[in-house]
Nucleic acid binder design. Sequence first.
RNA 1: GCCGGCGUAGCUCAAUGGUAGAGCAUCCGCUUUGUAAGCGGCAGGUUGCGGGUUCAAGUCCUGCCGCCGGCACCA
Length: 637
Amino acid sequence: MVAITLPDGSVRPFERAVSGADIAAAIGPGLAKAALFVRVDGEIKDLAHTVDADAKIAIVTVKDKEALTLIRHDCAHVMAEAVKELFPETQVTIGPAIENGFYYDFARQTPFTPDDLPKIEARMKEIIDRDEPIQREVWDRDKAVQFFKDQGEHYKAEIIAQIPIGESISLYCQGKFVDLCRGPHLPSTGKLPKAFKLMRLAGAYWRGDSRNEMLQRIYGTAWANEKDLAAHLTLLEEAEKRDHRRLGREMDLFHLQDIAAGAVFWHAKGWTLYRTVQDYMRRRLAKAGYDEVSTPQLLEKSLWEASGHWQKFRDGMFTTELENQTLGLKPMNCPGHVQIFRHGMRSYRDLPIRMAEFGACHRNEPSGALHGLMRVRAFTQDDAHIFCTEEQIGPETKSFCELLLSVYKDFGFTDMVVRFSDRPKVRAGEDATWDKAEALLLKAAHDAGIETVPNVGEGAFYGPKLEFVLKDAIGREWQLGTLQLDLVLPERLDATYVAEDGQKHRPAMLHRAILGSFERFIGILIEHHAGRMPLWLAPTQAVVATITKAADAHAQAVHAALGDAGIRATIDLSNETINYKVRESSLAKIPLILVVGEREAQDGTVAIRRLGGARQEVVALKDAVAKLAAEAQPPGL
RNA sequence: GCCGGCGUAGCUCAAUGGUAGAGCAUCCGCUUUGUAAGCGGCAGGUUGCGGGUUCAAGUCCUGCCGCCGGCACCA
């Protein structure tokens, strides 16, 4: 006798042990058909799983959120089956569900080509139509290893060999395809929705290690139904339209060129945007008690050796030789800042010292890592280092967090996740120091009203980190700001201050950035706003467009008045229709179009048309300028 | 760096191994226009760079460079 408790609280008795499928069938034929998995006391199992004791049961259908991940996993298996049918010489390895879909890594001599994807997709649909039962079997370890070896599946055999002794080895069979897998899986391939699409091919290292051989990965996206799939594909198109590389070209902001891979050519408009962001940051930092400094680009190797960068990041540094010396182009600003701190005696009365620099740094990023503005070799950080006493770590962290939140808000970002990265395996410093540092940082973040998610073992070797991850308008995540507590570098570079006791002490150092790099931040800004910048950031804030030549003089007066009020405006007196001019400036994503025709010239007014809006507002020139100048003011001024 | 794909006019894209084209933009005319493309015309190219195969290479082979998608990396 087995008592099954259903989600509504009702209890159904069964004579003997039952499977999830039996339970679904007992409830009703509709559910029996829709059933994909069964949840037994919170744990999701195959529908065929036998329940032989009293339990809380829920039948999982495609409507359940958890089902989607499992469906994606099944989709990976069906893909693997299709690949094995089409290309029998291929070895299978692993194929998990991931965000929005799945992938499967294959090993084979000849790589797949993009033409293979539609073929594989078609075969997958055949496999679904065949409705092959998917059956779980538990095998003896040695038998399983031998089986996969006999099949020529050496990767699978290797995976089994590494499963801890005592854990059961489960295999899933569908058609002729047998795969090692923990499961759970659908009862049959026919249950898999056909709402999937194979997206791309990629290389991927076996076990994620670049010393290993490279496998062929196929990525796919999979959803509960066609509608969700279509929505996802639309979202991808949307993301493509927002791509900062595309918008950067269309809006004439910047370009990248072979002759300087990984470095940005900022055009006038892009540089205006850059300077607007930088000027804003400069004001915010000054207000928050930071002192701006500037340190050299090229510094002797001995400094990088002392700081530890030479040992750890030498490959990532650009160097040059000069009269028997090796100089390194700075990859970071901190060692330079410590030199300023060390220059002369520091008293505890001077602390905290908040030293800021818009430091231009160079890092020799691997060629494959470069990506538009997001990953470059030459960039400028909104970097600062706070030298302080241990007691000041808490308050300094708190005020930094507050500054950061306020800055993000001004740029239109409100959705944020903060990761707390604690001690890594390889680290410097005593455990007691780490205990203290981690506790201080965590408490200070919480005092600033910030919730953190743990990011275990991901801290810097010298101290724990807060990482600020923003979500943009279409839900993508970007890591921007960081705060790192460092008790190591002051030691290595011998920074000291004289404390109340007259003795020399080591300051603590907080490495911190809000935007990260200007290049990357501007890339994110462009994508977040889809190029339609808030008025204060728009490189060109307004265009004055005439309808006829008769309005030229008035248009020039309007343009001049806007310029005097500090508004970045251009004027379009060209021999084109107003339709054309509106279209052009709209495509250029200029926030304001001031239309001037004979009527406006006569009345001394302007017609204000906002980007994307259909309505216009006719206002006296003087009022328009005052109103727009106020609107265009950067925040916090 | 590794795997795969790609590189043709400013942009988007054509061109069986056989004379490199189109649309948009630029420029020049005409049109003087009322809220997302008025009309016409001129011009625009060492097909990323270097080798090779061939009577003939944008196309095939090869070496670089760069870009794209991943992987690895990201102080």
